[in-house]
Design a protein around this nucleic acid. Structure first.
Lengths: 131, 131
DNA sequence: TTATTTGTTATACTATATGTATAACAATAA
DNA sequence: TTATTGTTATACATATAGTATAACAAATAA
């Protein structure tokens, strides 16, 4: 799995890592039971500190996407465990709201906004994700 | 215009302010030419520091939503100035992507995601916004 | 011209977040 | 037992967020 980091981005490195791995799960590249690389290995590969990778893994664990065992390492969770719950809906809604608001201010129609969203989902389908 | 802040939120206060004002513009509550309160006044009303409000105004100016004059204060820009440009599309896309990815991981279908977005736009329309 | 309003800037301080660098600790599978 | 792996601790640097005060600067209105 190829992970590209943008060290100039205002998005923290550990968050970019979280996003990359979630994208891997969404597209089916990472399947339940798959192992993530050891923190030391991934840190070396990406040229970042071990603790940065560890922070990303902890975050993914918190979100329910992986389980972490000593020695076994980080493993992708089963699909059941990561189902959308009320907490997620609230977070999703709270994230989408300001984006929609600014879009309306900038004269994007509802239709244009939905089309943009559709494009993202089509990209996921193209890579093998089911949605 | 009523602005409610959540001091416990992980979203910075100045950013919550930015969102609130953008929402006001989206719904039509704030129209081109309308004045925002002086930084001191708004800061006092909200119980935050003057510089926090100033930061929000600077951010809104940067985004093209307001103009700031000495003495006259902050004024909502004309609709033309805040049209969506390539920079905004990129930002919007970059923000939507991880949300869509995580949604797919949590078994939201494309259709469910689009419905959720639609609800937000309907809320905007209900409040008088055009989209 | 003068006074007032308003945004702007400067300084200082606190707390938190992000990231690096090292090193040691602890569990567990082989 | 040993090697691997996650975990934790320290220390450090930098940036962000927010508060508190105060002074500066422009522009409008009297």
């Amino acid at each position: 799995m190829l992970i590209e980091l943008d060290f100039q981005s205002d998005i923290p490195i550990y968050m970019q890592l979280v996003h990359a791995i979630i994208e891997g799960i969404a597209t089916g590249e990472l399947k339940p039971g798959d192992k993530l690389p050891p923190v030391r290995t991934l840190a070396a590969d990406l040229g970042v500190n071990m603790l940065t990778v560890n922070k990303a893994y902890q975050h993914l664990k918190q979100l329910g996407f992986i389980q972490i065992h000593r020695k076994k390492g980080a493993v992708i969770n089963s699909e059941e465990i990561r189902k959308a719950d009320d907490k997620f809906y609230k977070r999703l809604f709270a994230s989408l709201r300001p984006l929609a608001m600014e879009s309306v201010c900038r004269h994007l129609t509802k239709s244009q906004f939905l089309t943009l969203c559709s494009e993202i989902f089509e990209e996921i389908e193209l890579k093998g994700g089911k949605c």
